[in-house]
Structure formats: C-alpha cells, structure tokens
Simulated scan of single mutants.
Amino acid sequence: MKDPVNLLSRRPRAVEDTPGTEADAQVQLCAFFVGDDEYVLDIRRVEEVLPPQRVTAIPHAPAFVEGVVHLRGVVLPVVDLRKRLQGVPAAESRKARMLVCKLGPRRVVVRVDRVAEVLRVRRGDIKPAPALMVAGRSPFVVGVCGPPDRLRLLLDLKALLRAELAREGALQPK
C-alpha cells in the first residue's frame, strides 16, 4: 500500500485541470484544530477518533509525548500536537479528541483540541506547501487546501514525528 500522506506526488502536472484525470479524484481529509489553527490529515491515516483517555506518563520522553494509553489490549504512545506544533501544552476542553493514527506498521495517538469534519477535496485543489514552509521549520506541512478565508494545512504525520520514530523503540508499542 502506498503511503497515504503522499497525496500530491501522484498528481499529473500537464493534465491537472482536465476533467476525468487523477487531479479530479476526490480524497478524504480529517480536519481538526490545534489552538486556532486548522490542519488536515489523510483520512486513511486515522483509524478512529476517541474522547480523551487516561494517559500514563513516560519518564524522559520528549516533551510533546504525553505518555501511553492502553487501548483494547495495546499500549500506544500519545503525542500532544499542540505541544509539538506550538510549544504549549493542550488546553483542557470537552471538545479535545484523540486520533488513533497509522504510521506504517506503527500506531500512535495524537491529541488535538477538536475535530472539525471529514472533507472531500479534489486532489487538484490541494496545493503544495510554499517552499519557505518546507525548507524552514515546517517540513511536515506538505500541502494547503480550502478557500482563501479558511486555509487548512495538510500534515505529514511521519515527518512531524520523524526524529522520535528514528529512535530505537521511541514510539513502538510494547
């Protein structure tokens, strides 16, 4: 199976706007908020959306790794996206949710402030992230979609957690 986050790489360049092309294909994205910012993930990455669960802290984990949760017999790491993206811990809220996400053979839980909706977007309507975002401090933002007054950033969850995934066993379920 191809990596679900790679929505942009398969878009043909010469025939983007021709009806019936891959650019016209619809993709589904899970939209959510972290603070006031709206992000999207390929829905194929998201296994389920849960209300907040009890998290057990892990000593010496990266600051944005809250700990682990026990979910139906499996222990999964929990990443606070607000802390990872903005450097501040998640605010307590009834709207907060946990997204159980697939990262290849691994699974990880990401805490978000609220889930907005599932969007259907034409692949051709997802624009590549501006070069400054990719080259700078946001290599995990791979695209932008939505109307001008409500742009959503397409996250590459693997890139966002790359350093932690590279560490021996840092995010592997035990």
Rank of each mutant, 00 (worst) to 15 (best):
S138T: 10
R107T: 14
L103Q: 01
R106M: 11
V88Q: 13
L71V: 10
R84K: 15
V88I: 13
L153P: 04
P77G: 10
S138N: 15
F140R: 05
R152T: 10
H70T: 14
A131K: 12
P139Q: 05
L132Y: 12
R94D: 02
P128A: 03
V100H: 08
A90L: 06
A91K: 09
D80L: 01
G87W: 04
L157Y: 01
L71A: 06
R152H: 13
R150L: 14
A90H: 05
A135D: 13
Q86H: 15
G104M: 04
P139Y: 08
V112M: 03
V112N: 04
G136S: 06
V134D: 04
G124Q: 03
L81M: 12
V134Q: 10
P105A: 07
K83R: 15
V118T: 14
V115I: 12
R150A: 15
R72T: 10
F140W: 15
R137N: 14
D80N: 13
G73C: 02
V142S: 07
G124H: 03
G143V: 01
M133Y: 09
V115C: 08
R122W: 08
P128V: 01
E92D: 14
A131C: 08
L85F: 12
P128K: 02
H70Y: 11
L76I: 13
R82H: 06
V100Y: 07
A96G: 06
E117H: 10
V79W: 00
K95V: 00
E92H: 04
R152V: 10
A129Y: 01
A91L: 09
D149R: 11
D80P: 08
R107W: 04
V109E: 03
P130N: 13
S93D: 12
V110C: 10
P148Q: 05
R97I: 00
E92F: 03
M98K: 02
D156A: 09
S138M: 14
A159C: 03
P130H: 13
E117C: 10
R72Q: 15
G73I: 04
A159M: 05
A131M: 13
L81P: 00
R94C: 00
S93Y: 07
R84N: 09
S138I: 04
V110P: 05
P147Q: 14
A91E: 15
C101L: 02
G87N: 05
P128T: 01
I126S: 07
V115M: 13
D113G: 10
G124W: 02
V115T: 10
K83C: 12
L151P: 11
K95Q: 15
V110W: 02
M98I: 11
D80E: 09
G87S: 03
L157W: 03
V118F: 12
R114E: 15
V121A: 11
M133I: 12
C101R: 00
A96C: 07
I126M: 05
R122C: 05
V134M: 06
V109T: 12
A135G: 08
M133A: 09
E117V: 04
R72A: 14
V100P: 06
G136L: 01
V109Y: 07
F140E: 08
L153I: 04
K83Y: 15
L85Q: 06
D125R: 12
L85Y: 07
D156N: 15
K102F: 08
D149E: 15
L76S: 09
P89Y: 05
R84Q: 13
V118S: 09
R82F: 00
V78W: 04
L103E: 02
R84Y: 09
P89G: 07
